[in-house]
Amino acid sequence: MRIELGAVVDARAVVLVEGVSDRAAVLALAARRGRDLAAEGVHVVVMGGVTNVGHFLARLGPPGRDLRLAGLYDENEEGFVRRSLERAGLGAGLSRAAMAKLGFHACVADLEDELVRAVGPAGVREVFAAQGELRAFRIFERQPAQQGRPVTAQLRRFLGTRSGRKEAYGRLLVEALEPDRMPRSLDAVLAHV
């Protein structure tokens, strides 16, 4: 993965996220909090998957540009992120709490899951309805592969069934949340920068 360093030349801090939906959620929360990240010199960089975190840490962290870094990662990828942080010289034997102090926060199971749980099934359906997608979700949830699955799992899976949907709903679900219901990991990563 090639990093366009020109895109972060004026950065004082970088939030590393796996994909575009995570970026949309971080930017939406910043807007809700009245923050202009670009004016603050904070860039939200999509890594194209967690397996690229080591490369980004090497280029933007202590071995490279030495920028203030933060990031979101899925809980099941914690070991990979931990080893990458350690290789970048950001600590040794890092616990989840130590990683959080560095600005790297775990999402359970991923950010979409946290947002769906925070908004709640009825709230997510309301957001789908406002976007004209409730009928499509109703058809989706009747598919044999969805039978017997928890509704939160169905809602989360629906987000990934069409190109661009996860990104759009990353923003829309953050906008639908009451400020005190924001996922901890999302709030924490933004507070770190």
Rank of each mutant, 00 (worst) to 15 (best):
S163T: 06
L177N: 05
A58C: 04
V116D: 02
R35S: 08
Q143E: 15
P63M: 06
E133C: 11
Y73N: 02
G48A: 08
R23H: 11
E178V: 07
A136S: 11
R96L: 13
R171H: 06
P121Q: 09
G148N: 12
V20K: 14
L27P: 04
L67R: 09
G89E: 01
V116I: 14
V119S: 02
A31H: 03
D36Y: 14
G89R: 01
S84N: 00
Q154V: 08
R171G: 01
L72P: 03
E175V: 01
G61P: 07
R171M: 03
R125W: 07
R87F: 14
F56S: 00
V15K: 00
P144L: 14
S95E: 12
P121E: 13
A39I: 13
L172W: 03
V45L: 09
F128G: 15
G49T: 14
V193K: 01
L177V: 07
R65Y: 00
G93K: 01
D66H: 08
R83N: 00
M99G: 07
C107D: 09
A31L: 05
A109H: 12
L57T: 06
E133S: 14
Q143P: 11
E78W: 02
V20N: 10
G79Q: 06
R162N: 06
E167I: 07
A31I: 07
A31T: 13
L37G: 13
E126Q: 13
R59I: 01
K101C: 00
R171I: 03
A30W: 02
S95M: 02
A118P: 06
L172A: 10
I139F: 14
A122G: 04
A11Q: 09
A130R: 12
P179G: 05
E114V: 02
S95V: 03
A168V: 15
H105E: 10
E112P: 01
L159P: 07
R68Q: 03
L72Y: 05
D22L: 08
F80W: 11
F137G: 11
R68M: 07
G170K: 00
G19H: 08
V119K: 15
D66T: 03
A136M: 08
H43I: 05
R142C: 10
G49W: 15
E86Q: 06
A136I: 15
P63I: 03
R138G: 09
L5K: 11
L16C: 03
A130K: 09
L27I: 07
G103Q: 04
T152L: 05
D36Q: 12
S163M: 05
I3F: 05
P121W: 01
L72G: 06
N52W: 09
G6S: 06
F137A: 11
P179N: 03
V9P: 02
R181D: 08
E114M: 14
P121S: 13
L159E: 15
V45F: 04
C107L: 04
V174G: 04
A58F: 00
A100S: 11
H192F: 12
H105T: 02
V20P: 03
R142G: 11
R181W: 01
R142T: 11
Y73P: 02
M1H: 13
I139E: 15
V151K: 14
R149A: 10
